[in-house]
Amino acid sequence: MKVHIDEHRCVAGGQCVLVAPDVFDQREEDGIVVLLDDSPASDKAGELQEAVVVCPAAAIRLDQA
């Protein structure tokens, strides 16, 4: 699975970090999402799907690779 983020859409809500802290973080200065792992293990699929759903800006996209 491949994770893509759109920093320009991100509104710094932090929901992705709460759901999948091993994959997402936030920049200190503005709270914009930081991708820690763009190809996480398959056991993270549930967390990643939830992160996509809870993102208020729809800034996260997953590709099944």
Rank of each mutant, 00 (worst) to 15 (best):
D6P: 00
V33C: 11
D22V: 00
S42H: 11
L48R: 03
L35S: 06
F24I: 01
L18Q: 13
M1I: 13
V19C: 00
C10N: 00
E47G: 06
E50C: 07
I5R: 00
E47Q: 15
L48Y: 09
K2E: 13
V3I: 14
C55Y: 02
I60F: 08
V33P: 08
G46Q: 11
V11W: 09
E7T: 13
F24E: 00
H4Q: 08
F24H: 00
I32L: 13
L62Q: 06
V11Q: 14
G31P: 05
S42D: 15
A51Y: 10
L48N: 00
D6A: 06
A59R: 01
F24S: 01
L36W: 08
A20T: 09
F24R: 00
C10F: 02
V53M: 13
K2T: 09
A20R: 04
G13D: 02
V19N: 02
A41W: 00
Q64P: 07
V52N: 11
A20P: 12
V3S: 01
V54D: 11
V19E: 04
A65D: 13
V3Y: 01
Q26R: 11
L35W: 11
V33T: 12
D63P: 08
G31I: 05
A41Y: 04
V11I: 15
A12P: 06
V33D: 04
V53Q: 14
E50G: 04
A58G: 14
S42A: 15
E47W: 05
H8E: 15
A51V: 07
D43L: 02
A59H: 01
E47K: 13
A57E: 02
L18F: 14
V53W: 14
I5S: 01
D43P: 04
Q49P: 00
D37C: 06
D6H: 08
V33W: 05
D30P: 07
V53K: 14
D22K: 10
H8Q: 14
R27Y: 03
V11Y: 03
D38T: 02
